[in-house]
Amino acid sequence: MNNVATPLISNTLRAACLERIKEAQSGSGGIEFLLLATSDGYSICHTIPASQDIQPSRLAAMAASFSGISDGLAANANKQSANGSIIETGHGLLVCRQIKSSRHELVLLAAYDKSTNHGLALWSLNNAAKQIANVLEHYN
């Protein structure tokens, strides 16, 4: 049961995605980090500083689980499927957004600092997601 690197994501695609999430983070205030994962829970790239005691692979798996639950919840409430979901904490928001292209299903997770409000967070994450979706179309 070894964790194998995800075979469907090429290194060029990975690099391009990393480029976009770095831009997104520097382009909008309040983002602590971004993490992009496959919908089945493998980390593709992230901006989590090494100094932080966070395991990106664990986070990728849990973000995928969370998105999976959101989708299931939406479907069972007759809302078809989820586009994203929000976790509120005393230390800032965590937001997941699902990104789908014809070849890839991904989850983008963003962590915001305490000062960022819902509107700002959703807006900045939507922009980042659009950028990634663009990249995916390009590399399809």
């Binding site: 995800t6 075979p7 089945d40 689980s65 999976g68 890839h104």
Partner: peptide, 12 residues
């Protein structure tokens, strides 16, 4: 009810 997604790890 399930939470199935596309399997990106066909090697596994």
């Amino acid at each position: 009810a399930n939470t199935e997604v596309r399997n990106s790890n066909r090697d596994m």
